[in-house]
Design a protein around this nucleic acid. Structure first.
Lengths: 219, 219
DNA sequence: CAATGTGAAACGCTTCACAGCG
DNA sequence: CGCTGTGAAGCGTTTCACATTG
């Protein structure tokens, strides 16, 4: 009875819960590294700007992880979230666009800790093709399907200019990826069965500046 | 009567609407560049993955911009959103952390188009301090208050490792910024009156991989 | 007694359906 | 007739309040 029971994940969790799960995981790892074995919903929520009730309800979707009077055991909860998130799988990734941002992503250390690895890079610029960055070689974009057969990447990152983003997306899909993370400042159109996430750096700043002007503090 | 009337923005718009406003703006600019003078809610929504009703309702919070039977005039709508978002102001920005990611942000062209400009960079690494990147000089982090007096930045970007992020945030606040965009993979604690936005690249991938595994297609 | 787990209430956002307009 | 603007209904999420537990 010392171990907690994880509900079947068939229990569809609300989308909003899943987005917070990653934040909980990250924060729990910091807390645990810092030496704490347990944490209460109030503490954890406080660090992330969520209410205690929300933290408890979020975890309750997946099972009973807490001990009344004590809180949650970090290790246990970390393991549970990692399982739920599938964070124990390895994810080889293809990068399209070896410009400023693409090169920074290739060098970024934070991915490997979470088992994401950029295994191949692609670009259309002949000057970039053939070079190596952090041990990853830059291939011509046209070669993506050939390389995909060998490297088996399932996710793709688009770090091209806006004009080339749709083409990059199409090539990635042709190469068989099932998810695309798009850093180009334009919406891309993909088949229904492909998952996408977008990060537009300028938009992040725009939202922030709006919040500042309108005195909306905190998140 | 040819011009539309913009409601006072005192009409507090839902947070969710504001996050979409930036996407509308970006997309309208693409559509307009592409030569179209008008766009319907169905077209615009289709490109972004929103319903037509949502698009109409979103704009209706700020006034009456559309013409029945025609749609929305791109120019008019672009101007209106820019006004609402305060996108006509200039935002000088301080960057803390001149590593991989920081340098990529300094070189990123997408900011200036939206009137964001990194005017000073800071780092604690003596090897980086004193160098110039894209015409921006890297100062010692301790000098931030002195530089702030001259450069008057109101926003700060944190692109440091997780361990240094809280300290970077504290220095930025001491230097008088009112908003912080945090790329470090850790939650930071700030005074109530400071706005924050977070972008964690690994978390974006984690969310994407979860969506792939759980067959959640599209957004 | 400090903390969880959880129904029920409250809230905010999205979708629906349709009147109204050019 | 195509498309907007908008109340009203519907839905998902958050907060509240409290019984429950080690």
């Amino acid at each position: 009875m010392a171990t907690s029971k994880t509900k079947t994940l068939s229990t569809e969790a609300p989308k909003a819960v899943v987005t917070r799960l990653s934040l909980y995981l990250r924060e729990l790892q910091h807390i645990h590294h810092q030496g704490d074995e347990t944490v209460s919903s109030t503490q954890l929520g406080g660090r992330l700007g969520f209410s205690d009730a929300q933290v408890r309800k979020d975890f309750a979707y997946f099972g009973q992880f807490g001990r009344p009077g004590i809180g949650y055991r970090c290790e246990e909860l970390i393991a549970a979230i990692r399982t739920i998130m599938g964070a124990d799988l390895n994810w080889p990734i293809a990068l399209v666009g070896a410009g400023n941002l693409g090169r920074a992503l290739l060098r970024y250390k934070g991915f490997s800790e979470r088992r994401f690895q950029i295994v191949s890079a692609f670009d259309t610029d002949p000057e970039k093709v053939g070079s190596q960055i952090e041990g990853v070689s830059v291939h011509p974009l046209d070669a993506i399907e050939t390389v995909a057969a060998k490297e088996k990447f399932r996710l793709g990152i688009i770090a091209t200019p806006a004009e080339s983003a749709q083409h990059a997306a199409d090539r990635l899909v042709a190469a068989g990826v099932s998810g695309v993370l798009n850093f180009a400042p334009v919406a891309i159109n993909l088949p229904e069965n492909i998952c996408t996430a977008e990060v537009d750096l300028a938009i992040e700043l725009e939202q922030l500046s709006f919040a500042v002007v309108n005195q909306l503090s905190e998140k």
